[in-house]
């Protein structure tokens, strides 16, 4: 059975759409500096953001096949984090001890999740909606949760793109927000909050249904307003 601690030990760190095959990105959370990457077999991986060779950040690296390559000397790390190839010495089999620490990482519900808890239980089923965008906010996760919980959400004004918003529900993983657009359209935003540090967070947002470009722009402008609102009231 899942306990509350198990459930919330997973952190959403990217939108699935935001990390294409061969993509690498930096993730920071709770003092951890991490590199998130997707192999060409579509699997996602999370490693310590530091090549053990000369300390280079692996988030500057590149993916070939199913290996993450350090940009400095091209050392290749496989999906287990073990160093598989050193270009300066192709004949050398790297020792097993030569590896970069990994964290559990899954692509689930349209988001990429990691956990710092090696005993975390699997995430429950959740729908995978199309990603809208990830937004950096200079506010703590707790304050964002409190702000969304209060229901006091901003509105945007524009003849076509203006939105009013209300919270539909919140779960341990995300918050669903209904947007009523000036055109009469409606959309549902799914907002997942990632803590970056005590002062910074990221919102990973999805729309529950395929949307027109106009609707995506309206929702995106509303997210800008939400960020400004959160930062102004923090």
């Amino acid at each position: 059975m899942n306990t509350a601690a198990d459930i919330t030990s997973w952190l959403p760190v990217a939108l699935s759409d935001g990390l294409p095959d061969g993509g690498v990105m930096r993730v920071q959370t709770a003092g951890h500096d991490l590199a998130l990457w997707r192999a060409h077999d579509h699997s996602v991986h999370c490693v310590d953001n530091r090549c053990p060779h000369r300390g280079m950040r692996l988030s500057f690296g590149f993916v070939r096949g199913n290996r993450l390559n350090c940009i400095y000397h091209g050392w290749q790390y496989g999906e287990t984090g073990a160093c598989a190839y050193i270009p300066a010495h192709p004949e050398l089999t790297p020792p097993e001890s030569l590896c970069v620490p990994t964290l559990p990482c899954v692509d689930h519900g349209g988001r990429v999740w990691i956990t710092l808890d090696p005993d975390a239980t699997a995430l429950p089923a959740m729908p995978a909606h199309p990603g809208l965008r990830s937004v950096a906010v200079n506010v703590s996760q707790d304050r964002i949760q409190a702000a969304l919980g209060s229901g006091a959400l901003p509105s945007t004004t524009h003849p076509q793109r203006g939105c009013s918003a209300r919270v539909l529900d919140t779960s341990a993983f995300d918050c669903r927000i209904a947007l009523d657009v000036a055109t009469g359209d409606t959309a549902t935003l799914v907002v997942s909050i990632q803590s970056v540090s005590a002062e910074r967070s990221q919102l990973h947002t999805q729309l529950t249904a395929a949307a027109s470009v106009e609707l995506k722009v309206a929702a995106s402008r509303w997210l800008d307003a939400l960020r400004d609102h959160l930062e102004a009231t923090a």
Partner: peptide, 12 residues
């Protein structure tokens, strides 16, 4: 780092 255990050099 001057502690050889902090980074992993190779022959190169």
């Amino acid at each position: 780092p001057l502690d050889p255990r902090m980074e992993s050099p190779t022959r190169a």
